[in-house]
Amino acid sequence: MTTSEPPRSREQRKQDVLLRLEKDEDAWVATASAAGEPHLMPLSFVWEQSTLLMCTRRTNPTLRNLESGDRPVQVTLGHTRDVVHITGTAVLVPTPELPSASADAFAAKVVWDPRNSDPSYTFFRVVPQRVQAWREANEIPGRDLMTDGAWLV
């Protein structure tokens, strides 16, 4: 890694993370099966109620991996020179049980409404437990912005 700019403060990094969560539309979602087989999938999201609201088909390995509810999920935004890592837990929300305001927010942001698609689409919320953010090697110290579900700044 190269270092060309001074490191951002943790406060600035948190603000940058929150802006990215508000503006970005897609993220990489990593899960693992009960047998430990990894699966990586790009999914759209909306940052709502301090969670990432996402949606995919029930047949997608991502959702199947999350159905047990006891395995972590890793969500990554950005690229290698401006990355946000979010480790959390997933809570499945069947489409008929999702509040209309949440589904509307998702549809408005990603310009696609799963409620009008195949009924196998299911929403889930990623509840962040750990958030890390850095751009260059000089930001690796202090990259933890949230641990145990609580912001550090």
Rank of each mutant, 00 (worst) to 15 (best):
R81G: 08
T2F: 13
M54A: 06
I140M: 14
A27V: 13
I140N: 11
R20C: 14
R81Y: 05
T89M: 07
A27Y: 12
E136R: 10
D148C: 06
V93A: 11
G78T: 01
S44M: 09
R81E: 00
L43T: 00
F123L: 01
T3M: 11
N116T: 14
A35W: 04
G88H: 04
F106Q: 01
P128C: 04
T51Y: 05
M54L: 15
H39C: 04
P141I: 00
E97R: 06
R57S: 14
L40C: 09
F45K: 05
F106D: 04
P114Y: 15
A150V: 15
P61L: 05
N116S: 14
A105H: 07
A90V: 05
W47Y: 15
D24F: 13
R81D: 12
G78A: 00
M54T: 06
G149F: 10
A137R: 13
E97C: 04
P94M: 06
R71L: 02
W112Y: 02
R125Q: 11
H85Y: 12
R135H: 08
E139F: 10
S120A: 14
P61Y: 09
E97N: 07
S4R: 13
A34P: 09
L18H: 00
T31H: 00
Q12C: 01
W134L: 00
V17L: 03
A101K: 03
L77S: 06
S33W: 02
M1Y: 14
G88E: 02
Q15H: 11
H85S: 08
C55A: 14
A32M: 11
T3V: 15
L53Y: 00
T3A: 05
K109V: 02
F45G: 01
R130P: 03
L98V: 13
A30E: 00
I140T: 12
T147G: 01
A105F: 04
